[in-house]
Design a protein around this nucleic acid. Structure first.
Lengths: 133, 133
DNA sequence: CTACGAAGTAGAGCCGACTCTAGGTCAAGA
DNA sequence: TCTTGACCTAGAGTCGGCTCTACTTCGTAG
């Protein structure tokens, strides 16, 4: 419908798993690397690069980066060459937070696994008694 | 101040890292395994078991279990013996969600690490050029 | 006595990230 | 011609999990 490199907001929603609402919201929040082009009737026309960028944003969001920080990063990318150190800083800081998150999650997992083990033992011992009777 | 097994809400806040507000909130939400005892003047008196229970709740929250589900689990524990299978179900379901979360987080981490690597290479190559001049 | 700090209650407020509503445009198909 | 469906904007609403406010009541130290 839109030539092979133009995607409608609906198509992008399908491919990214974001809702059309979320896509408009992200745009308003300034987390698209390049301004979205508009087609006839003022409709958004996305490119494959937009989709790729969005997929990266989704990864950042999933790992807990807040929207304002994604915006900061996006702005640096929009400004072009020369600020790679700043981009690197943002990414490294986030990397560290994700690492900590994973450690915490592993601790929680250990506790849960311990409790699951105890309950399984208990439940099995009850079942064994019932069979024995 | 309160004998060696009674803790004030402030002391529990210190030991758990929760705010006193959060402690009252958790109580109102019914996620304390045993009703908190009240001392003179209607003040809450917590035991070490309460603290232990709270620490487990904190782990569950940290790993993303919603308060209503912690309440369901708490209620089963309050009811006493006989519902261990249900408790096990809740824990196993949560365990699975945490597992998935960890997988996702690892994917994000991989992407971030890849990008950090690329930016580091780039930044180093720029630095090398500068030295070379 | 007074002032302070730590506790109590009930309920309002906040924040982030969407999500949804209302009201409108436009193009294609029955 | 009429309807449908995908899109548009601006702005309101939602939800979870606290956090904070207002006001009161104690018990102790100065």
């Amino acid at each position: 419908m839109l030539g092979d490199m133009g995607l409608s907001i609906g198509q992008v929603a399908e491919r990214t798993g974001l809702s059309v609402h979320a896509l408009r919201f992200y745009e308003k929040e300034g987390i698209l690397a390049h301004q979205v082009h508009r087609g006839p009737g003022g409709r958004r026309v996305y490119t494959q690069q937009d989709v790729d960028w969005l997929r990266m944003c989704i990864m950042l969001r999933m790992s807990g980066m807040p929207v304002p920080e994604i915006r900061r990063y996006t702005e640096l990318v929009r400004q072009g060459d020369g600020n790679e150190l700043q981009r690197l800083d943002i990414l490294k800081e986030h990397q560290e937070r994700v690492r900590q998150q994973m450690v915490q999650l592993q601790e929680c997992m250990d506790l849960i696994t311990y409790k699951v083990g105890k309950y399984e033992d208990y439940v099995n011992s009850i079942a064994a008694k019932a069979v024995g009777q």
